[in-house]
């Protein structure tokens, strides 16, 4: 029973790690539309939106638990984390919404014509710059988990794979 629970936790942790890695890389790529090109920037951001929703769903129990006892007995680090996450949610919503309002690929593809508004463009840039700082803080607050999980799911498998042929060779020679 305990092994099953451990395996479930491990799988969940791996899923969280993969989702977070995709979000992190996608966000960094999405902040440079000139490098990727406008269409890739927009489609990547749409994918990012889906991944952020998945990220929220994966952490739903934590959101509910902290929301219930935010003003009660809860560790200050959790409270700061919660407030930061609310800020991040607002910021990402602004980025996505203003991005849709100035879209040149995705929205026209749906046959929609939105009124041109330069305020959305400057707001999109400002919110994305704020997003870089907020995501940096979000990563910093979870840095211990990131390091631990990276070792477990990224570094250790690579090291194992690199050492495997050498071990096999040594066994054959014997």
């Amino acid at each position: 029973m305990q092994t099953v629970t451990k395996a479930k936790t491990g799988n969940r942790s791996k899923t969280n790690y993969v989702v977070d890695l995709i979000i992190g890389i996608s966000f960094l790529l999405a902040t440079a539309p000139n490098a990727t090109g406008e269409p890739i920037h927009e489609w990547l951001s749409m994918g990012l939106l889906v991944m952020v929703v998945v990220h929220l769903l994966l952490h739903w129990q934590w959101i509910v638990a902290i929301s219930k006892k935010l003003f009660g007995k809860v560790a200050w680090q959790q409270r700061i984390n919660y407030m930061l996450n609310i800020g991040l949610f607002i910021d990402l919503t602004i980025i996505m919404f203003t991005g849709v309002m100035i879209s040149k690929t995705v929205v026209p593809l749906l046959g929609l014509q939105l009124p041109s508004n330069l305020t959305w463009r400057s707001l999109h840039g400002l919110a994305s710059d704020v997003g870089v700082v907020l995501i940096g803080l979000h990563l910093a607050l979870h840095w211990d988990w990131i390091v631990r999980t990276s070792k477990r799911y990224l570094i250790q498998p690579i090291v194992k794979r690199l050492h495997k042929p050498a071990t096999q060779l040594a066994t054959k020679e014997q």
């Binding site: 960094l28 902040t31 440079a32 000139n34 490098a35 840039g125």
Partner: peptide, 9 residues
């Protein structure tokens, strides 16, 4: 804000 390419990343 669309200025810059990979430098932005």
């Amino acid at each position: 804000h669309h200025e810059g390419g990979f430098g932005h990343i």
